[in-house]
Each structure stands twice: as structure tokens, then as C-alpha cells.
């Protein structure tokens, strides 16, 4: 049973968290049961999890897209923020447009913003062979500082000392789809993006080229496929998905641009993509579960526990997944032989 390793990894991660909490003198059992019931068994928790799942899911789709070409885009956080910045620019300066025009424009701006930033790293990789891990990651810090400059400076809300812009006009806010919650249209957008990615990769010529290049660049080149162009395209899409995620987040959930994002966004997103083994439907599930973990983290903070506990649990889960990888492969091999 290759699938068995997922619950096993989660179990080990929770056990590690248990240990840490016990060491700090907390009653881990009640923390877990409370967190679980609050996140997954209450409307509020569930709806908040769905809200969190949008940025995570979009980022994970971006990571998975790049990974199809064996590229490691660990700059999704920067691209996310850059997309949010581009969308915010439109929201602040074109606030007279009606929502039907402004929201799509913002989405395109977010997508292109994040996409071009990642494509720049793709260009360096394709043209000069510069490792994309390093460039995408370093740009996270640059974009973070850039957004910081804006929200502490020219874009800061008038008369405010909080580092954030004014609240977006109603036309720049994605509508809520379940009244009484914060769940917004971005959730639908996420599902549509996932479906589009799936269709693109499996049914389009360009998607085919990306799969071929990802599997064997040499064979792809011999078959007349332009590898460098595929790298550019895939990075554009990868960053674009993250950037669109940034737009959905500022327009749907936060309604303003703020300094700093979710801590360790990149890593969490990476984990979602890795847990799902780049399977797009799996990413949605993993994104939802990890979003639940994030929301559980907020509850734990209310209970006086450090939010970093969630990060540790995620790290341990990721390591357990690596540890179980040989088991999973063996199981798959045996299953393959039996068939």
C-alpha cells in the first residue's frame, strides 16, 4: 500500500509536535483535539481553511509547474508578493473602474508580475546556466524589501502608522461566495487554475513539450523542441500562478497590501507540491490539509503555543516523507509487477 506512508508521515510529525509540547509542559492531546475540532469540525474553522488554501494552492501549482521541467522555483513567495504588488497598483490607481473590468485586470497584472519576475530567473538559467534555486530565492528578499518600502512610504494609508495600504475600493475586492464567511471567489479561481494546468500539461502541444523537456532535455532537443524556450515558458507560468495567487490574496482576503507575508510560505507551498508528487488534484488536497494546519497554528497561538510549532511539524512531516520514499517506491514496484 504505497498510500500508507502519508498517514504515517503525518503521525510521526504529530508525534514530534507532541514531544515538543510535552517538553514545554502543554497537554498535547487536548491541544490536538481542540485544534482539530476547531479547524475541521466548525464552520468558521473550515471556512478559514478554505481561505488559506487559496494562496497555498496557487503557490503549490506554481512550484509543481516548474518542477515538471525539473526546475526548482523556490521564489514563489517573492513572486506571490510581486503579483500582489502589481494588483494593488491597479486597485489603488484605477479604483474608478467597475469590478468586472478591474478584477480581471488585476488578475492579469498579478499573473504577469509574478510570471515576469520568475521568467527573469528562467532567462538567467536558460542563457547563462545560473542556478534558479539561488536567484529565485534571493529575489524573495528583494521583493519583500520593495513591498516594505511601499507600505512604509508612498503607498502607506494616509494618517496611519501601520505598514499597509488603505483598504481597496469595493470594486477591487473579490466577492465572498459563502455569506457569513471570508471564503471568496478566489477559491473558484484556484479550482479553475488547477483544471487549466491539468489540461495544459496533458492536452496541449506546449504542455507536451514541457513534459518531454522535463523528462529528457537532450531527447527533446533532438526532436526539435526548444529547451530554452520551454524553460522561459514554464518559469513564466510558474511565477504567474504564484503572482495570481498574490492577487487573489490581497483582493479576496486581506483587501490591502501589507508588509510581510505568511512566514515560510515558500516551504509550505513546496511541501504541498512534494506531498502530492506534483499530481495536480493531489496538490489541492495537500494544500487544503496544510491550510488546515496553518489555521490550527493560529488557534494554537491563542492557546499560548508558539506558531513555530506548526513549522516544526511541517518540517518533520517533510523529512518523514523523504524517509519513506524508498518504501513507497518498493511498494509501487511490487504493485507494478503484480499488474
Amino acid at each position: 500500500m504505497p498510500g500508507l506512508i502519508y498517514p504515517l508521515a503525518i503521525f510521526i510529525a504529530l508525534a514530534a509536535g507532541w514531544l515538543l509540547m510535552a517538553m514545554a509542559g502543554h497537554d498535547a492531546f487536548s491541544v490536538y483535539t481542540q485544534a482539530f475540532s476547531k479547524v475541521f469540525l466548525s464552520w468558521h474553522g473550515l471556512s478559514e481553511t478554505l481561505v488559506q488554501a487559496v494562496p497555498l494552492g496557487m503557490g503549490a501549482l506554481g512550484v509543481a509547474m516548474a518542477a515538471r521541467l525539473k526546475l526548482w522555483n523556490i521564489g514563489v513567495e517573492g513572486q506571490f508578493m510581486f503579483g500582489a504588488f502589481c494588483a494593488t497598483g491597479l486597485a489603488l490607481y484605477l479604483d474608478t473602474l467597475p469590478a468586472v473590468a478591474l478584477l480581471p485586470l488585476m488578475l492579469v497584472a498579478g499573473f504577469m508580475g509574478g510570471g515576469l519576475l520568475a521568467a527573469l530567473c528562467g532567462l538567467l538559467r536558460a542563457r547563462l546556466g545560473i542556478n534558479e534555486i539561488v536567484t529565485t530565492l534571493l529575489l524573495n528578499y528583494v521583493v519583500g524589501l520593495w513591498v516594505g518600502y511601499l507600505v512604509y512610504g508612498p503607498w502607506q494609508a494616509l494618517g496611519s502608522n501601520v505598514p499597509e495600504t488603505t483598504e481597496f475600493a469595493a470594486a477591487a475586492q473579490l466577492p465572498v461566495i459563502f455569506p457569513g464567511t471570508r471564503v471568496h471567489l478566489g477559491l473558484v479561481a484556484l479550482l479553475i487554475f488547477a483544471a487549466l494546468c491539468h489540461f495544459f500539461l496533458n492536452n496541449s502541444v506546449w504542455g507536451y513539450r514541457i513534459r518531454a523537456c522535463g523528462d529528457n532535455p537532450r531527447a527533446a532537443r533532438t526532436a526539435g523542441i526548444d529547451y530554452k524556450r520551454s524553460v522561459l515558458l514554464v518559469m513564466l507560468l510558474s511565477g504567474g500562478l504564484a503572482g495570481a495567487g498574490g492577487m487573489l490574496e490581497v483582493s479576496g482576503a486581506v483587501h490591502r497590501l501589507q508588509d510581510g507575508t505568511t512566514p515560510f510560505f515558500t516551504m509550505t507551498v513546496f511541501m504541498a507540491a512534494w506531498l502530492a508528487r506534483l499530481d495536480l488534484a493531489g496538490i489541492l488536497v495537500a494544500g487544503f490539509l496544510l491550510a488546515g494546519l496553518q489555521v490550527a497554528g493560529y488557534y494554537m497561538q491563542f492557546m499560548g503555543l508558539p506558531s513555530a510549532l506548526v513549522t516544526v511539524i511541517e518540517g518533520v512531516a517533510l523529512l518523514s516523507m523523504i524517509a519513506f520514499e524508498p518504501l513507497r517506491l518498493n511498494a509501487l514496484k511490487r504493485a507494478g509487477k503484480g499488474a
Partner: peptide, 27 residues
Amino acid sequence: AFTITLKGNQIVSGLALVLLGSGLSTM
């Protein structure tokens, strides 16, 4: 141990170290 003995993906294991280090150090 994760990459040599278990032959896990070196990049993913490295990212896990970043996660683990960030979380543990904060705690």
C-alpha cells in the same frame, strides 16, 4: 542520513532542514 543512506531528494531534504531550523529556533 536522509540523502546518502535513504537516498532521498537532496533539495527537498535541504528545504526540510530550513523549515525545521526556522521552526525549532523560534521555539
